[in-house]
Amino acid sequence: MAGPGDQLKLFILAGEPSGDRIAADLVRRLKQRVPLAFSGVGGTELQAEGLHSLFPMSDLAVMGISDVLLRLPLLLWRVEQTARAIRKARPDIVVLVDSQDFSKLVARRLKMFGFAGSLILYVAPSVWARAPQRAAKLKPFFAEVLAVLPFEPAVMERLGGPTTSYVGHPALGERLSRNALERGPLVLLPGSRDGELRRHLDLFRQVAERIADHPAVDGIVIPTLSSLHDRMVRETAAWAVPVRVVSDRAARADLYRQAVLALAVSGTVTLELAFAQVPEVVTYVLDPHQARIYARHGRPPVALPNIILGRPAVPELVQSAPDSEVMLAAVRVLLNDKKARQDQIAAFGELSNLMETGEDRFPRQDPADRVLAHWNQRPLSAS
């Protein structure tokens, strides 16, 4: 068992901005509880907590088979590099945040090395959407999965996956309370990965240029990461309408309070918008491989608010080819209908309450508690 004053040795890896935020929140929670020494891979948020990243997090921020194939040699090297670094550091606990395929490859490599510490996967894979057989395949690798969606522990249990606990999402701490606004900025969230930006940014431009003069729209704003700020400024400089780019977290929070509507690429940001009670239209342009998989699985919902609530609370537009007309129409419908925006806000309140508490059998837990539970179980001679 861990003794009083012992130092927790943690290796933590985040492969993309949403995971970086989750990982940084976990590190902050652990620092409040125990002496902590940590290493790993992360972005600006983990680095702000003192992490010296093993390599740039952006190396892992890929989505879609075409993006993966382009970076496959680098990704395979990063798997080996990560596993070797963990083996050398001999941490008590490894937390791999999201980046599902990469995380599983690292876990498999660590098992081959005979790594004796606890491996925790933070953010459950979407086995409920496709490939349910993946749940049981995770069990040999991970001591526990920390889920950010309230229904996932029950799903993982039913499918024979690892022990799974619901821990909520850091953005829950930024819940707002407000009504639909008559007028405000239109927020554009075109993604953060290179592939997402390639597929969505010009599409968002076409919508913005044709909706900017709507009486409910008071300017176009793109909140982004600090690492993408200059790129967004450059790429929007030639747009036919002025665009304000913000990358400061406080500025983003202020923007959400003022926003009339958001157009967002499907992902964790759709939950952040819901917690901030910003009405939204959710979209995603698939690459050809993603489109085939999506069709094969019956075109399931992709917007997290819709998935969690089990109903179409927000419009979602999943496209195999970019279609600005369809997107423009969906945005215009919401801008013209304040009651529809207010209905979304009411649904977001229901969603936030559910995510605050979790389900009856799987109530929300503190992620630091779950990590420390594994640390406290280790023999005193370990590490």
Score class of each variant (00 low, 15 high):
113 F>K: 11
294 Y>E: 01
329 A>D: 13
157 E>D: 14
132 P>H: 11
41 V>G: 07
375 W>N: 02
135 A>E: 04
377 Q>F: 09
109 R>E: 15
327 M>S: 00
23 A>E: 07
14 A>S: 13
317 L>C: 03
208 A>V: 05
6 D>N: 12
217 V>D: 02
157 E>G: 04
346 A>Q: 13
81 Q>W: 10
132 P>C: 10
189 L>F: 10
53 S>Q: 10
111 K>Q: 14
106 V>R: 00
383 S>D: 10
93 I>F: 08
376 N>Y: 09
147 A>S: 15
226 S>F: 02
147 A>G: 08
234 R>N: 12
378 R>I: 05
182 E>H: 12
23 A>N: 07
20 D>V: 03
273 L>Q: 01
49 E>L: 06
229 H>Q: 15
253 A>Y: 09
224 T>M: 02
87 R>K: 12
44 T>F: 08
194 D>L: 13
381 S>L: 14
354 L>K: 11
56 P>V: 03
92 D>F: 01
35 P>C: 06
204 F>L: 04
353 N>C: 07
152 E>Q: 13
51 L>V: 07
265 V>S: 07
200 H>M: 05
17 P>D: 12
67 D>C: 08
216 A>Q: 12
29 R>E: 13
242 P>S: 02
130 R>L: 11
211 I>K: 01
154 A>D: 13
209 E>Q: 14
91 P>F: 03
352 S>I: 06
119 L>N: 05
270 T>H: 03
85 A>L: 12
157 E>L: 08
328 L>N: 00
297 H>R: 14
135 A>F: 03
6 D>K: 08
270 T>K: 02
52 H>Q: 15
88 K>V: 13
375 W>E: 02
55 F>C: 06
312 P>M: 05
180 A>M: 13
382 A>N: 09
163 T>Y: 09
95 V>I: 03
317 L>R: 03
276 A>F: 05
300 P>S: 03
292 R>Q: 11
87 R>F: 06
1 M>N: 09
86 I>D: 01
190 P>L: 00
199 R>K: 14
289 H>M: 10
250 A>M: 08
263 L>R: 03
117 G>V: 00
13 L>K: 08
131 A>H: 15
256 Y>M: 14
33 R>H: 07
119 L>E: 06
99 S>V: 09
272 E>D: 11
176 L>C: 06
225 L>G: 09
233 V>M: 12
252 R>P: 00
369 D>I: 04
146 L>E: 04
247 S>Q: 05
287 D>M: 06
180 A>N: 07
57 M>I: 07
228 L>K: 14
58 S>I: 10
126 S>W: 01
327 M>Q: 10
43 G>T: 09
39 S>L: 11
349 G>A: 08
123 V>R: 04
322 P>K: 00
306 N>Y: 05
291 A>M: 08
132 P>M: 08
160 G>R: 03
60 L>F: 10
361 R>T: 07
329 A>S: 14
189 L>C: 06
350 E>K: 12
373 A>T: 04
204 F>N: 01
282 V>L: 06
356 E>T: 11
2 A>R: 15
85 A>K: 09
31 K>D: 05
301 P>Y: 11
197 L>G: 08
